[in-house]
Design a protein around this nucleic acid. Structure first.
Length: 269
DNA sequence: AACTGAATAT
DNA sequence: AATATTCAGT
């Protein structure tokens, strides 16, 4: 602590950004889409019932529709979308189910994040999302192998993972049935642009276990019944019936497959 | 250069 | 604890 200090100090002060350069905290940091996803009204503090979030910009399968319509109003309209973090993904039982199904139908060998993600074809799902989940899922599987003692059951079983049956072959790596009968990997090819309808985000500590519903799959927007009560409601619903994805993106061993019907996740809850 | 999987961070 | 992000090894 000598007199030098005063030197750098003044300099430092000089370099400070002017107040105008600082973004007002109150300004919307949220893109319209995100705001909607969050059920936030940035302008109107009006009543907050939420009934449903009918995706307004419903992507018409055929229409030229794009998802990052920033541009235009530069004056008052701000779009710091670039810098925005997407909300934490919440793996609902439904989502996890899809995940497990995808892995099961891919075979452990092909079940790598990218492929899984593609097969799931959930809008907004990123490869990292899947990778993260996959990592944890593998740990879960390992743990399970060790503890096959079913004594008493599994009370505090990993909540999420327990919600969906683990395909047997998952537990025996290196067995005759290690992979599914899929010589080709006709994954659905579809680029999800930005976040479309990300369903949930961490509400912090919530008493309810799963109250959320998952994302919506790409096509086939069916309506979701949301039970919004204070009880741990396990809802169900999500598009029923298998849907098809068209077009194939070469993938590993590009075959002539054009139409792929997804797994019979019909057993969804 | 793109992916993966493990470690590490929030 | 759950999810994200970083990191090193292909």
């Amino acid at each position: 602590m000598k007199e030098d200090d005063s030197n750098w100090f003044s300099k430092w002060e000089d370099d400070l950004p002017s107040p105008e350069d600082l973004m007002p905290l109150s300004q919307t940091l949220i893109t319209p889409d995100l705001a909607i996803a969050f059920d936030i009204r940035t302008t109107h503090p009006n009543n907050h019932h939420h009934h449903e979030q009918p995706p307004p910009p419903s992507s018409h399968p055929n229409s030229g529709e794009f998802d990052s319509p920033e541009l235009g109003g530069s004056g008052g309209g701000d779009e710091p979308a670039r810098t925005l973090k997407r909300p934490r993904l919440v793996w609902t039982p439904q989502l996890h189910k899809r995940f497990v199904d995808a892995v099961a139908h891919l075979g452990i060998k092909n079940a790598v994040p990218k492929t899984i993600m593609q097969l799931m074809s959930v809008d907004g799902l990123t490869r990292e999302n899947v990778a993260s989940h996959l990592q944890k899922y593998r740990l879960y599987l390992k743990r399970m192998q060790g503890l096959s003692s079913g004594s008493g059951g599994d009370p505090a079983t990993d909540h999420l993972f327990a919600s969906s049956p683990v395909p047997a072959h998952f537990l025996h790596p290196g067995r005759g049935n290690s992979d599914q009968f899929l010589p080709y990997v006709p994954v659905a090819a579809q680029q999800m642009g930005r976040y479309g309808q990300i369903g949930h985000f961490g509400p912090g500590r919530n008493g309810g276990q799963f109250e959320g519903h998952p994302f919506v799959s790409r096509q086939n927007h069916h309506q979701q019944v949301i039970h919004r009560v204070g009880t741990p409601v396990v809802h169900h619903n999500v598009s029923a019936a298998s849907y098809v994805v068209d077009d194939v993106e070469s993938a590993a061993a590009a075959n002539g497959r054009k139409i792929l019907t997804l797994f019979p996740t019909a057993g969804d809850d």
